[in-house]
């Protein structure tokens, strides 16, 4: 394997991480809006939520990526693969995060709602002070799950010529034919990124659990 390959892979890994990070941030924000929609009083809004989740979750990420990659220029939006790729990842992870959050809201015990209602809390305070903190604690493990998946899912974007870790690996392989070494290294990079997110998630879990949440270790 020629010198410089490792550096190229590392650069690819950084791009992958940036893609995943933007997808996680953007996807989380979109998912919060979606999850609020899921509990709307208006049936049409709830239906909108379901359609979004079913369509996005029921379509392969690869197909979604190709679709957006060809659709955006057709709509006269000259965006290039990076914007299209980031958008696809955001749209995709938002559907998964939204279901995670919806599960968290459903897990809030009825008495907690009743306490909040009996205090006459306005909707925003109810969300900020009661719903969001509880949902965060309930959903951290599945949330981290989706984050890890997002890092790996970003490899799909190599198909629409987003230069990231997987595409970097393929380029090196084409020049060197060192298939197993290069793919092994790429896998190791992915593993390190995912492992890091896992550790971060655990730390956050401990940090939040220490605040007297039921389930705290004595």
């Amino acid at each position: 394997m020629p010198a410089g390959s490792l550096q190229l892979l590392a650069q690819g890994a950084i791009v992958s991480l940036l893609l995943a990070a933007s997808a996680i941030v953007g996807g989380t924000l979109l998912a919060i809006v979606l999850a609020v929609m899921a509990f709307s009083r208006l049936a049409a809004v709830r239906a909108g939520y379901r359609v979004y989740v079913y369509v996005v979750r029921g379509t392969p990420l690869l197909v979604l990526a190709l679709l957006l990659f060809y659709a955006l220029p057709a709509l006269d939006l000259r965006t290039g693969p990076y914007i299209a790729g980031t958008l696809v990842l955001i749209i995709y992870t938002a559907a998964l995060f939204a279901e995670v959050f919806r599960g968290g809201v459903l897990a809030i015990p009825r008495p907690q709602w009743e306490s909040a209602r009996s205090l006459g809390l306005p909707p925003l305070a109810m969300f900020r002070k009661v719903v969001a903190p509880l949902v965060t604690r309930y959903t951290l493990p599945p949330y981290v799950n989706v984050c890890v998946m997002t890092v790996k899912a970003s490899s799909v974007l190599s198909i629409i010529s987003v230069w990231e870790l997987t595409l970097a690996a393929r380029e090196i392989i084409e020049r060197t034919f060192a298939v197993f070494t290069v793919l092994g290294l790429a896998a190791a990079f992915y593993f390190v990124m995912c492992f890091g997110i896992d550790r971060l998630g655990r730390r956050l879990e401990r940090h939040l659990a220490l605040r007297g949440f039921a389930g705290e270790r004595a």
């Binding site: 008495p111 306490s115 909040a116 007297g212 949440f213």
Partner: peptide, 12 residues
């Protein structure tokens, strides 16, 4: 209102 099971907010 005060409930049988207290129903305090556990994260506060």
């Amino acid at each position: 209102i005060v409930f049988q099971q207290y129903n305090l907010f556990p994260h506060m």
